[in-house]
Design a protein around this nucleic acid. Structure first.
Lengths: 116, 116
DNA sequence: CCGAATCCTCCCCGATACTG
DNA sequence: CAGTATCGGGGAGGATTCGG
């Protein structure tokens, strides 16, 4: 049992999955993998995410040490986000899930949809 | 945009992650990777999961085609769960997340916990 | 351009009790 | 031993507004 940040994790796998939990983190990381990117550009790329949620998730990812936030003291403000090594490593794994999804997509499409 | 089972997915990655979403699915799959296992034995192994949730998750995984449910017509009832090829493939990826977690655990422990 | 604050909704999950 | 039914709390995330 791992006790961490006021949460309980039953094993290291559970603990590790925590860092990409939720609908958006995996997608965000994958987009960051292409290189540093600004907030608005990221929001445009990750279609459908609200400003609030994107902000929340970026903050979490930064606190977890998966991404770095670079603030440029300019007018208008410029902020760029990029992956750390730790973040790059897990993003590579995430991309395997994407490959898996692509490989099995035709199959998954059928098995999941229940016939009426 | 992928429309599937009354849910919307923004991309194939989002779609793929859906199959292991939640606190338990990844852990369950990893335990099944060792070989076929019965319900109660699985519940004992996946510490802390309730019967209801384990049942729900197994049903979802079966519908998704990631696991197979083998029912033996015996008294008392015997049911064994095992991975399909599709399930094995994604479980291998999940195990990489576990490795990542192990590798970075000391680091993660520090970065995540905010100093007061 | 960036992000904090508020409010609200939905669904994951836990606890408990019951059936074959 | 295996699975179902019901109730309820809490967290994730969407819409909107406001501040630097």
């Amino acid at each position: 049992m791992i006790d961490y940040n006021n949460k309980k994790y039953i094993c290291l796998l559970d603990f590790g999955v925590e860092f990409i939990r939720g609908k958006w983190k995996a997608v965000i990381l994958c987009h960051l993998y292409k290189g540093p990117i600004r907030f608005l550009e990221l929001q445009r790329t990750v279609k459908g995410i609200s400003q609030k949620v994107l902000n929340d998730k970026l903050k979490e990812l930064e606190q977890d040490g998966l991404i770095i936030k670079n603030i440029y003291a300019e007018i208008p403000p410029k902020v760029e986000y990029s992956l750390t090594d730790k973040g790059k490593d897990i993003t590579r794994i995430i991309k395997e899930i994407e490959d898996w999804s692509i490989q099995y997509y035709p199959d998954l499409k059928d098995s999941c949809k229940q016939p009426d």
